[in-house]
Nucleic acid binder design. Structure first.
Ligand SMILES: NC(=O)c1ccc[n+]([C@@H]2O[C@H](COP(=O)([O-])OP(=O)(O)OC[C@H]3O[C@@H](n4cnc5c(N)ncnc54)[C@H](O)[C@@H]3O)[C@@H](O)[C@H]2O)c1
Ligand SMILES: NC(=O)c1ccc[n+]([C@@H]2O[C@H](COP(=O)([O-])OP(=O)(O)OC[C@H]3O[C@@H](n4cnc5c(N)ncnc54)[C@H](O)[C@@H]3O)[C@@H](O)[C@H]2O)c1
Lengths: 239, 239
DNA sequence: CTCGGTTTGTTCTCGCGTTCACAAACTCCT
DNA sequence: AGGAGTTTGTGAACGCGAGAACAAACCGAG
């Protein structure tokens, strides 16, 4: 891995095959580093950063090692330098244009969310199929007809789309997005999307999260009644 | 596992140690079964259900085998029977009372979300620290002062809490929830929560999801420019 | 009853991810 | 300069989960 480290230092677009589990944690590290930076911390050890990110320090170091050798032994990591390196690796040193489709309860909340802009994303359009919603202004952005998707996607080179429509409409919306060249979809509708292999889909599903909590909750209370030997249940952050 | 299967058939509160990965998929199967049931399907094979749930059929069968032997070889699964068994296993045959704290953009959207009720959850209170929000009615429920948490949690035996406050307030809210006996928390604030080991925390983080998509998106476009040999990138649903 | 077709439940294997543990490397103090 | 103390980066061990493959079990026809 020594060679990889050197390559990472010299050529910006390097870093072969980062494990998916690591990729999912990089944003967490990035956020922790931003917080540390805002607090005026110049350097931090892997242990400090691990605590701030809520993970094991060994895991943190291994994750960072996939990006290169950005730390100094005996000292730790330069907060701003590491922050930049992770941001670059994730790809949020420039803003990504994003469209949100389905401007109902959830879509409006998302549009109003200020955390996007500051974390590498820019909402370029709000689209809805319901004419009654059109011409409304949400978070300073006009709500446009869904039919405008193709034009907007082309004009802004949109690669990422957010689906916040009812479940029945989600597959149609996804198909149209794919047809417009969108290759990454964040889906809030509780349904399975069928997309070509080159398109990435991530889903955020409220009910599933709650049901997972309910399962463990049931176990806790039943275990108490039942008197069964429940081993140490870890309450670690489960992503 | 033969013994476990028999036990599962006879005693309702059985099913030792279901793997976490399986637990996370049970809600997906449940939803697929509900859809199938509503379509009038009486029985289905593991292959059909797997397609509906967006997973491999071998994985599905293995997952279900942890609950017991609820299928019939050569036939498949009785949709309604399996649906009930999974619902019982997850613990959503009765409703769980839930409190939502932080009734801003996101909290209001959550309160208005009708999918909770139908999936085993009942919002019993909306709490906010801002007096300006009090006495507003969202989704037919009064917004109450945050100080009411203890009384409400006790009166309704609330075990599950949802945090939709700004990040800076999230840890305080979590501490108060834990003090009130809440042992499961769904956190929307982009921060790491410190809670006792017996408390389960699940987080839903928009920015992280988008950043993961951005990472892969960057790889796709860079790979094209670079002409590097990018192996077959799978676009499967990543939870 | 028997046989062919079908589908489940389970075993086995492989790869990924987590964690431990430690050598290498760096700083600071004497 | 050298040694003590600190922290990184990584090799190795281990456990969990994914998937292929197959025997066991069930149905229906004849
Ligand atoms: N509100 C929540 O907190 C919440 C929580 C979890 C999941 N969800 C899911 O998110 C999705 C949106 O929820 P919501 O509460 O905002 O629903 P909503 O009904 O308030 O809004 C849906 C919007 O989508 C629009 N729409 C419908 N079909 C469309 C189409 N084909 N193209 C474009 N727009 C279309 C509608 O006009 C409407 O404005 C749903 O699938 C819901 O299950 C919502
Ligand atoms: N809106 C979104 O789509 C979105 C997306 C991703 C993440 N988030 C996160 O969800 C959280 C809420 O987002 P939002 O857009 O609804 O923010 P918001 O500012 O609209 O609402 C926050 C609410 O929490 C209340 N609050 C503040 N401190 C409190 C306390 N100590 N106790 C109880 N209530 C308190 C405020 O009065 C306000 O009503 C934030 O952490 C945000 O980062 C929101």
């Amino acid at each position: 891995m020594e060679r990889a480290a050197v390559t990472a230092r010299t050529s910006p677009e390097s870093a072969r095959d980062i494990p998916e589990a690591t990729v999912a944690r990089l944003p967490v590290y990035l956020r922790a580093l931003v917080t540390l930076s805002e607090q005026g911390t110049a350097t931090c050890s892997s242990e400090e950063l691990a605590v701030a990110a809520g993970v094991n320090s060994a895991k943190l170091r291994k994750d960072l090692s996939y990006l290169g050798s950005y730390g100094t032994r005996g000292v730790g990591y330069d907060v701003d330098y590491l922050r930049y390196q992770i941001a670059r690796e994730i790809g949020v040193t420039q803003d990504w244009p994003v469209v949100i489709v389905g401007i109902g309860n959830l879509g409006q909340a998302l549009a109003n969310y200020s955390g996007f802009r500051s974390r590498g994303f820019r909402v370029v359009a709000l689209l809805d199929a319901d004419p009654a919603r059109h011409d409304a202004v949400v978070a300073g952005i006009d709500v446009r007809p869904f039919a405008d998707l193709e034009r907007i996607a082309r004009e802004h080179s949109v690669a990422i789309g957010v689906i916040a429509t009812p479940a029945v409409a989600a597959q149609d919306v996804a198909d149209r997005m794919v047809a417009c060249g969108i290759t990454s979809i964040l889906n809030f509708a509780p349904t399975v999307l069928n997309v070509p292999a080159e398109v990435d889909v991530r889903k955020v599903d409220l009910s599933i999260e709650l049901q997972i909590l309910a399962y463990h909750e049931q176990r806790k209370t039943n275990g108490a009644q039942n008197g069964a030997q429940d081993g140490a249940r870890e309450g670690a952050q489960t992503a």
